[in-house]
Design a protein around this nucleic acid. Structure first.
Length: 423
RNA sequence: GGAGAAGUGGCAGAGUGGUCGAAUGCGGCGGUCUUGAAAACCGUUGAUCUUCACGGAUCCGGGGGUUCGAAUCCCUCCUUCUCCGCCA
């Protein structure tokens, strides 16, 4: 959520910047300013009225005490009248605040000046590419075939027990998952992150705080009986730890890491890009989250980008980094880098990580603040990134490392898997 | 799941209808003293909205109600604790 004062003061500028996200904000912003004016006026009227009845109430108390009953009753009648009009104003006030909020929620985050214009992923800016694309042997096959050849991932069994997109990992497949999770967590911990194991279900306040609600409600699994949502990413519980909190400047940077299962309904995704591990309803991910001082958040974003690069380098996977264009940027993000890994048998780049700076957008929804040197409360900046999401990493590892004799485990993972080869 | 108790400022804890945004202690911050520190002493110390400012309004787990007036009474939800039951 954008800050009201910022909207009021930089109206034209914000309209211009939101156009990069292909969002026409002119009308909404005008409505917001009008509603805010009305809110201020209504509050002033209401406050004056309440102030008056507070005074009367005190007077009545004093009159009763000093035994002036009649006088007290007189004022009491006056007070009852005041009360009726204050009730009306109160209602008007809360309606105004509510509509103001509804409008504010419609506004996406302002993209960073470096965000290129564009409509789709085709317009994203390629920033960096590293590693060599492997030459596979003649009989190379995509990962879903490798999965069944070596009996390490069973998609059909998942369909039987749950449904499409919920695979079973088996034997060395399961152990590879566990190895990757531990590798990613250990790497983050050595970078100074604090490990959390979050709940996998969240309430609607949390969903609202990080921006999944209300816009992406249909993307989350919902447990109606208890009014809870299955998390689409550990970002939600981990960032919401700080909902309604005021940090000290000395708390920065807050660096948290969490492994979790992630659940996504992926309503409306079909086609060949969803085959095998490319898109699942349940998957594993290690997520890094930082909370930072506004002056430092972009340095932090670069730092997180480097960390993720280092993971992919250690796994010996060819990867590239893309800066998302306005049209591809999420509602909540100001700047996002996507990491893509080359999957050699599918012959395509797979998105394995997304690292973003949300600036104060999430913090404003969550009321996540810090005290600055003058003792004033200011909104903090939040950032997060996948480090990393497992399924597509596994897909690329299986495809790229396949040989006639089996799938070779990268050096760095061997101490975690305790085997060198899947055969 | 059943029965009972409780939720107050960073923490502890008083407050059962008006003078309470809230005693007191601890902690935090500033100062005096000291070569420095500790101790002692003095001062200060919640959030949000609004106002150029003075000031005003709201907040005692969340929401609703009673009353001229609610931290205090009523309803409801949530959370925590104790006992019983069940259970990885």
């Amino acid at each position: 959520m954008l800050q009201l004062n910022n909207i009021r003061e930089n109206k034209e500028e914000i309209i211009k910047q939101l156009a990069v996200k292909n969002f026409d904000a002119a009308d909404i912003i005008n409505e917001i300013v009008e509603l805010d004016d009305l809110r201020k006026k209504t509050q002033k009227d209401l406050d004056d009225l309440l102030s008056q009845s507070n005074k009367l109430a005190k007077e009545i108390g004093n009159l009763f005490k000093s035994g002036q009953r009649e006088k007290a009753e007189e004022i009491k009648a006056e007070s009852i009248n005041l009360k009726k009009s204050s009730k009306d104003l109160e209602q008007k006030f809360s309606h105004t605040v509510q509509s103001l909020n509804e409008k504010l929620i419609e506004l996406p985050n302002i993209p960073h000046p470096s965000v290129p214009e564009g409509n789709s992923d085709a317009d994203n800016e390629l920033m960096y590419e590293e590693g060599t694309i492997p030459e596979l042997h003649e009989n190379a096959i995509p990962h879903w075939e490798l999965a069944s050849k070596y009996q390490i991932i069973d998609f059909d069994l998942g369909s039987k027990v749950t449904g499409a997109g919920f695979p079973f990992y088996r034997g060395k497949g399961a152990r590879l998952q566990r190895a990757l999770i531990n590798f990613f967590l250990d790497e983050a911990i050595s970078e100074g992150y604090l490990e959390y194991q979050p709940p996998l279900l969240i309430n609607s306040d949390s969903g609202y705080g990080t921006g999944q609600l209300p816009d992406k409600e249909g993307q989350m699994y919902y447990i109606g009986e208890d009014d809870l949502y299955l998390i689409p990413t550990a970002e939600v519980p981990i960032t919401n730890i700080y909902r309604n909190t005021i940090l000290r400047e000395s708390d920065f940077p807050v660096k948290n890491v969490a492994y979790s299962n992630c659940f996504r309904r992926e309503a409306g995704s079909y086609g060949k890009d969803v085959r095998g591990l490319n898109r699942l309803h349940q998957f594993d991910k290690v997520e890094i989250v930082q909370i930072q001082h506004p002056d430092k958040s972009y340095n932090t974003l670069e730092e997180m980008k480097d960390q993720i690069s280092s993971l992919l380098r250690k796994l010996e996977l060819p990867f590239r980094i893309v800066r998302l264009c306005g049209g591809d940027l999420s509602f909540t993000s100001a700047l996002t880098y996507d990491f893509e890994v080359y999957s050699a048998a599918q012959k395509m780049w797979l998105e394995v990580s997304s690292v973003s700076n949300f600036e104060s957008f999430q913090a404003n929804r969550m009321k996540l603040r810090y005290k600055d040197k003058d003792g004033k409360s200011k909104l903090a900046h939040t950032l997060n990134g996948s480090a990393l999401a497992l399924p597509r990493i596994v897909a690329a590892l299986l495809e790229n490392n396949q040989t006639e004799n089996g799938i070779v485990i990268p050096e760095v993972l061997k101490k975690y898997t305790n085997f060198d080869l899947i055969n």
